[in-house]
Amino acid sequence: MLDITLGQYYPGNSFIHRLDPRTKILATLLLIVAVFLANTAVGYGALCVMVLFIIALSGLPFMLVLKSVKPLLFIIVLTLLLHTLLGQGEHVLYQWKFLKVTEEGVQMGVKMSMRLILLLMISSILTFTTSPIVLTDGIEALLRPFRVIGVPAHELAMMMTIALRFIPTLMEETDRIIKAQTARGADFSSGNLLARAKNMLPILVPLFISAFRRADDLAVAMEARCYRGGEGRTRMHQLAYHAGDAAAFVFAFAMIGLMAFLRWGPNVL
């Protein structure tokens, strides 16, 4: 009865949704570099426009993407306040005892918090438009070349796949066990921390036993289906780059170029 949607995938069929996962992962990394390169108001302005443009392309509701900032809101506000109140610089706007608000401080605070907001929004666009399963495929494909230096690309991907498959099942199971023990009068909410931890045993023990049983069954079933590790394995879904992916890369590199120009280039503005 429980339906657990993992991650925060927001189904759709936009240009961004359709991009190859490798493109999205790499482009996200490139855009993060671009964010770190930005150091002028114009640069940040351009990045904001860019994020708005990508959101429009992806068909995601703007508020949904903005909400991804929420978990780090406290840190963002703190960053802003610290820079603003303990600012360095010459153009003092206001001073009270050791608190000093400077123009440079305000600028720095806005920049740093903008940087965090942009990073969060850019990376959440990736997870909003890419299902965890496709993301796993992308990560595996990107890690594959590193197998020669011992990165277990296939094993990592397999583990992620199985986790994605079994987390909903185990959550249903947890729900069932909690109900069964509740029906036997179990109390999970009273007592001190130690008592509460002890009260969790009637849930945890059956859950672990079940998880081990499932793992055991699954291992046998995988073996019966000829699983023998990543060696010689093929994949049904072949990731393939299309014209759109090329466009995305060009766009991402252009953003880096723009930010680099604004940072180190002749001061045209």
Partner: peptide, 28 residues
Amino acid sequence: FQNPDNQIVAAIVEEDVAFGPENIGVLP
């Protein structure tokens, strides 16, 4: 096997069906 839950590997139906042939290196 008996338990329907414990023999499905992938989180998407067709990916699971593909699991066997992928293991033995069938072409995509």
